[in-house]
């Protein structure tokens, strides 16, 4: 299963990057969202999947899933949410102010 999940993570990365390389602000944001999804899946898969029960200590259970990647991902989810929302508002402001959401037009002049 890990192999398949790695491939899925790869697909998420590929689509994220394709979106990142686009000109429209919206697509770039979508790209970052997909990128963080891909990264989370990636971290989770790098450990091993389904090696035991959920990591909640219960008497009598010996095998648990690795809690460390989960802690990392949990932090990451929250941070990427912050980043996404900031990007959204930022791009909203930028496109309102400059009346364009095309990155090629938002490049800034030669001698600023």
């Amino acid at each position: 299963m890990e192999i398949l999940m790695s491939i899925l993570a790869g697909i998420l990365f590929a689509t994220a990057i394709y979106n990142l390389l686009q000109k429209q602000l919206l697509r770039i944001i979508i790209g970052t969202v997909l990128l963080s999804h891909g990264a989370h899946l990636f971290i989770l898969t790098m450990g091993q999947l389904k090696t035991g029960k959920p990591p909640i200590i219960v008497e009598g259970v010996e095998q648990y899933t690795d809690p460390l990647p989960q802690a990392l991902i949990l932090t990451s989810i929250v941070i990427s949410f912050g980043v996404t929302s900031l990007l959204l508002v930022l791009s909203y402001r930028a496109s309102k102010l400059n009346e364009s959401d095309n990155m090629e037009e938002l490049r800034g002049s030669e001698h600023e």
Binding site: E2, I3, L12, F13
Partner: peptide, 19 residues
């Protein structure tokens, strides 16, 4: 597309290798 596919592929390979 090339960059995206290359990068995605690389991440897949790294994921599998890491595992």
């Amino acid at each position: 597309s090339l960059i995206a596919i290359c990068f995605g592929g690389l991440m897949t390979l790294i994921g599998i290798s890491a595992h």
